[in-house]
């Protein structure tokens, strides 16, 4: 796949693909990231994969960026596979009921559909995690039913509780930590997407697929309690 590698500053290099949101480009990016981590981890400081580019951090006191670009170029040119063979699906239980679906009624009204219909449309797809960014573990998802696209709230909330599942424009996502935001909140998951004290602090990775599963408020509380017990 065609890409461009460029030194953009005294601390970073970019690998750029055509500027679009596509599963093919995104899959390619994941293969490249994996390869760079395998072969060049001792020469890079950090790596940020996104929709259509990869930022690679380097230390110019240790590494010559032109040489690093050449090495990266060698790795990238050998990668052609798109890596879609085995979909890794992460099921996220979501309670769409009160008191979690803060904007559920509004969103149903905007689209003139029933709550059941909205839940069906929202739980049906397998959403590709294109990238993680913004806050710890925040997944940028693709694949929402276009008929659910909803404008952001005019007045952003100053605090959206962790685990909240929402819609903003044609995007859907889940907040790993409490943060301010203007997303329309339709439910909440009892799972902790981000827990710094866990071996793997961030639950979801780019390249995985998310599938939401509707649960009752009782089920939500049961899962939440069992997680509390596990964490002591």
């Amino acid at each position: 796949m065609k890409s461009k590698i460029m030194v953009i500053s005294d601390s970073s290099i970019i690998i750029e693909y055509p500027p679009s949101i596509s599963e093919e480009i995104n899959n390619n990016i994941r293969s490249v990231v994996k390869e760079i981590k395998n072969s060049l981890s001792d020469q890079i400081v950090d790596i940020i994969p996104a929709y259509h580019n990869i930022i690679i951090g380097y230390d110019c006191l240790e590494v010559d960026p032109s040489e690093l670009c050449e090495k990266i170029s060698g790795l990238v040119s050998g990668i052609e596979k798109s890596g879609t063979e085995d979909r890794e699906i992460v099921e996220i239980p979501v309670c769409y009921e009160e008191p979690y679906g803060l904007d559920m009624d509004d969103v149903c009204e905007i689209h003139n559909i029933t709550k059941e219909e909205l839940i069906r449309k929202h739980t049906e797809p397998e959403y590709l995690v294109y990238m993680i960014g913004f806050t710890p573990g925040f997944p940028y998802l693709g694949g929402m039913d276009e008929s659910l696209a909803t404008p952001r709230k005019k007045e952003p909330r100053s605090k959206i509780p962790a685990g909240s599942v929402g819609i903003a424009g044609s995007q859907t996502g889940v907040y790993p930590i409490a943060s301010p935001g203007g997303w329309q909140i339709i439910g909440r998951t009892p799972l902790k997407l981000f827990d710094p004290y866990r071996d793997n602090p961030v639950m979801i990775e780019a390249g995985q697929y998310i599938k939401y599963k509707s649960i009752s408020a009782e089920e939500y509380e049961r899962i939440e309690k069992s997680l509390e017990v596990q964490n002591g």
């Binding site: 990231v33 940020i48 994969p49 993680i132 913004f134 710890p136 573990g137 790993p176 961030v202």
Partner: peptide, 11 residues
Amino acid sequence: RFGHQAKGISV
């Protein structure tokens, strides 16, 4: 905190 930006963890 380096090496975790791919997971959204700020430096």
